[in-house]
Write a protein that binds this DNA or RNA. Structure first.
Lengths: 201, 201
DNA sequence: TACTTCACTGTAATTACATGA
DNA sequence: ATCATGTAATTACAGTGAAGT
C-alpha cells in the first residue's frame, strides 16, 4: 500500500563501509567520529585516570589535535558509559550470587526435612523404649522447633534465565509482525507497564 | 487559553530558557529541544506502544510539526533510555530477592544447627538407654547426614548495602582526594580495574 | 528457483549540547 | 570552572521483505 518512494532522498547511507575505516586524520569538515588513534590515546588516558584534570586536558588536546572542549566532553560521555556498563556487571554478579544462595537454600530445606524425619524416627524409638521399660523417664525434649516461616517458593523473580540481557537479537518473530528487536528485553522479567518516566525533574 | 510563555507547570520549563541562550562557541543553534507539548504527546504515544510503525510516525510527524526522522530518532533514544531504566529496576528487584533468600538461608542454617543439636542429644539418650538395658539393639541410624557443602560465607558480594546505587553522592572522600562523584559506583563492588572497552575490531 | 539490490526498520555506540548542582 | 545527567542527532551495523535480475 505504501509505495510512494517519493520521499526526500533517504539518508540511509549504509554504503561507504570502508571496513577498517577512520583513515581520515586530516581535516574533514564533517569529521564526526574520532580516529582510532585518538580513541586509543583517550582510552588509555581514561584507564589511567577516570577523571580529567585541566593539565591533562590541555595535553591531550594538543596531542590529538582536538578542542579541549572535545576532550572534556569525551571524558564525560566515557564516564557515563562506564557507569552503565558497571551496572550491567553488577547485575550479572548479583545474579550469580542469587542463584548460588538459592541453591543453598534449597539444599538446606532438604536437609531440614531429612533431619526432621530422622528426629521423628528417633523420638519414636526413644518413646517406644521408655515405654517398654516402665515409663520412668518420659522424654521431654520432643519439641521440634517449628520452621520459622520461610518462603518455600519457586524463584519468584524471573530474571530471565538467559543471562545475556545484552545482545540477543537473533530471531524473534513474535507474531506475524516482524520485530527486529528482541522483545526479550522489552516485555520480559516482571510486571511494569512502560514506566512513565520521572516526569518532571 | 494557553499562555505562550510558561504553560504546563508539570514540567520544568526548560523551553523558555532555550529561547534565550543557544549561543555557544560561534555556532548557530542547531540543537533543538522539543517543546513540552511535543514531549507529552510523544511520551503518551510511547506509553501506548513502545514501537513505532510508519503510520503512527507520519501521524505524529504531522501533529507535532516534526520531521518523521525526528520522530523515529526520538523513539529510538527513548527505547534506549527505557532499557537502561529497566536494567536499574531489574537490579533493584533482584537485590530484594537476594536479600530475602539470604535471610531464609540464614534461618535455615540456624534451624539445621538446632536440629542437629537436638538429634545429637536424642541419639545420646537412646544410646545410653540401650546400653543400660543390655545392648540388645544398638541404634543403627546414627548417620546424621553431612551438610552438603554449603557456603557459610558472609554475603560475599558487596552489592552495596545501600540499595540506592543511583544518586548517592553524599560523601565519599575516600582518601584525601575529594571525588565529587560517587566512587561508590566506581571502585565499589568487586575487582575490575576499569574494564578496557571492547576495543573495536 | 535462487541471488542480489533497495528501502526501510531496528539496536548500539558516539558525539555534542544543555542544564542543574 | 567541572561534573553528572538528560537529550538530540549521527554513524555503523544487522535484519527483513519486496522487487529486479
Amino acid at each position: 500500500m505504501k509505495q510512494p518512494s517519493s520521499m526526500v532522498p533517504t539518508f540511509t547511507d549504509r554504503n561507504n563501509i570502508s571496513t577498517i575505516n577512520n583513515n581520515h586524520n586530516g581535516s574533514d569538515p564533517k569529521k564526526k567520529r574520532l580516529s582510532n588513534e585518538q580513541l586509543e590515546l583517550l582510552e588509555n588516558s581514561f584507564q589511567d585516570e577516570i577523571k580529567l584534570d585541566p593539565d591533562r586536558k590541555l595535553k591531550l588536546s594538543k596531542e590529538l589535535g582536538l578542542q579541549p572542549r572535545q576532550i572534556a566532553v569525551w571524558f564525560q560521555n566515557r564516564r557515563a558509559r562506564w557507569k552503565a556498563k558497571q551496572l550491567e556487571r553488577l547485575y550479572d554478579a548479583l545474579k550469580q550470587e542469587y542463584d548460588a544462595v538459592s541453591r543453598d537454600k534449597h539444599k538446606l530445606q532438604q536437609e531440614v526435612m531429612a533431619l526432621r524425619a530422622i528426629l521423628k524416627d528417633q523420638v519414636g524409638k526413644l518413646k517406644q523404649i521408655s515405654t517398654e521399660i516402665s515409663g520412668e523417664e518420659t522424654v521431654e525434649s520432643t519439641s521440634i522447633p517449628i520452621s520459622t516461616e520461610i518462603n518455600t517458593n519457586p524463584p519468584l523473580i524471573t530474571t530471565n534465565n538467559n543471562n545475556n540481557h545484552n545482545q540477543i537479537n537473533s530471531e524473534c518473530n513474535n507474531n506475524n509482525i516482524n520485530y527486529p528487536l528482541n522483545m526479550d528485553d522489552y516485555n520480559n522479567t516482571i510486571m511494569m507497564p512502560p514506566p512513565y518516566w520521572p516526569s518532571c525533574p
